[in-house]
């Protein structure tokens, strides 16, 4: 009862930043995709926390949308990873850098 909303949001912020750091640091595409999942999840958590603070169901609705988006994103992302591996025989995202200027 006495958990302030800020604590929930703080948790979301921490998870989001860890996920961001993961995306920025890792070169393995699978790890990057997992880190993106963490960030999405953190964003969903923030919605739930907000909805709980206001006592409304809108936050949960938003989470469902995020979930749907995450599902779609993961399916396409994993398919891309497979293609990447078939083409370059590696999961290093930096190896697919032929678009460099």
């Amino acid at each position: 009862m006495t958990i302030p909303m800020e604590y929930g949001l703080l948790l979301a912020a921490i998870l989001f930043c860890i996920g961001l750091a993961g995306v920025l640091v890792r070169r393995d595409v699978i790890f990057m995709l997992m880190s993106v999942e963490v960030m999405l999840n953190a964003a969903g958590l923030a919605f739930i926390v907000g909805g709980a603070a206001r006592g409304s169901a809108d936050g949960q609705v938003m989470f469902i949308f995020i979930l749907a988006m995450a599902a779609a994103e993961v399916s396409v992302g994993l398919a891309l990873i497979i293609q990447l591996y078939q083409k370059f025989k590696t999961l290093d995202a930096d190896s697919a850098s032929q678009l460099n200027g």
Binding site: I3, P4, M5, E6, L9, L10, A13, C17, A52, A53
Partner: peptide, 15 residues
């Protein structure tokens, strides 16, 4: 984010 969160007064969450 922390700065933004600490700025307003604390909000208890309903259960």
């Amino acid at each position: 984010m922390l700065y933004v969160l600490m700025h307003p007064a604390a909000h208890p969450m309903t259960r």
